[in-house]
């Protein structure tokens, strides 16, 4: 752990991510406003003591929407990546451990999925299923597990031949035990790195989907849809354009620095 925090990238990334996590978790305490409370008379107010980051077109407090938006955007990121990682770890360890036809079938499937312009696929599925937070998380997860699968498989292939695994086998441990107790925990480093980078990517995907009208739907604030609503007020209300954009920028930067730092710490390249 000490080693981890000696890395500067990790520290910077972690601080940024942690800050936004705190905002997201304590959203209710931090602000006195309701993120969906409309006050038509207060529309488009510039930042002030009352409204730290101003108000939007329907008179809602931007700071409040931003911290509640952090909740949504970060959950989209974490859950999507969680799904992808889960699928990736399961398929990857099956493929890497059992080899044979199962391995080839899984890896062919990975190849096929990797060929798709993923954003096309996402777009089609979300447009068809209707864009709810739930669908967005799942679909992003279902279209981004391929990298993890490959990673885990490769790790397991190399671990399998190590002495301690061979020893477990000799002692008569079951396959499941070997996979769950040894192989997966020992390949967690690279997975952590790719998951960290994945969270940032998923948040970006949500904002791109919002741009096309397929992101998280109103009145629920997400950083993506806040940014889209701000598009219309470009030149009239700078605070609407700047703050959500900066929030996305810093969060993703944070996750990337963290991921990059972890990569250096674990000495994993790929």
């Amino acid at each position: 752990m000490k080693k981890v925090f000696r890395n500067k990238l990790v520290v910077v990334g972690f601080v940024i991510v942690f800050l936004f996590l705190v905002l997201a978790v304590f959203a209710q305490i931090i602000t006195k406003y309701d993120p969906t409370a409309i006050v038509v008379e207060d529309a488009l107010l510039a930042p002030s003591a009352d409204h730290w980051l101003g108000t939007d077109q329907l008179g809602r407090d931007v700071f409040t929407r931003l911290v509640f938006g952090a909740r949504i955007s970060l959950s989209v990121g974490f859950i999507a990546v969680g799904i992808a990682t889960l699928i990736g770890v399961i398929l990857g360890s099956i493929a890497g451990y059992y080899r044979g036809w199962l391995d080839s079938a899984i890896m062919r499937f990975v190849d096929i999925m990797l060929c798709f312009p993923v954003f096309f696929l996402l777009l089609a599925v979300i447009a068809f299923l209707e864009p709810s937070i739930f669908n967005i998380m799942i679909v992003i997860g279902l279209t981004s597990w391929m990298g993890v699968t490959r990673l885990i498989r490769a790790e397991i292939l190399s671990l399998k031949e190590r002495e301690f695994i061979l020893a477990e086998h000799a002692l008569g441990a079951s396959s499941a035990r070997v996979i769950l107790r040894h192989l997966i925990p020992n390949s967690i480093g690279p997975v952590l790195v790719s998951a960290t980078l994945g969270v940032g990517a998923a948040i970006l995907v949500e904002s791109s989907l919002s741009f096309l009208g397929l992101g998280v739907q109103p009145p629920t604030p997400s950083w993506g849809n806040m940014l889209i609503e701000a598009k219309a007020t470009l030149g009239v209300a700078w605070w609407l354009t700047v703050f959500p954009g900066v929030a996305i920028l810093f969060t993703i930067l944070g996750f990337n620095l963290l991921g990059e730092g972890l990569r250096e710490v674990f000495g994993y390249n790929g």
Binding site: I38, L58, A127, E130, P131, G213, L214, Q217, P218, P219
Partner: peptide, 30 residues
Amino acid sequence: QGNDLRISSAQIIQKRLADIGIRMKIKVIE
């Protein structure tokens, strides 16, 4: 989807109905 005026109107109606004790959800569909 795609009509911001309608989506904003829906949000105002949502608030006014909440005032008289009616819970209205909004769903925007392509």
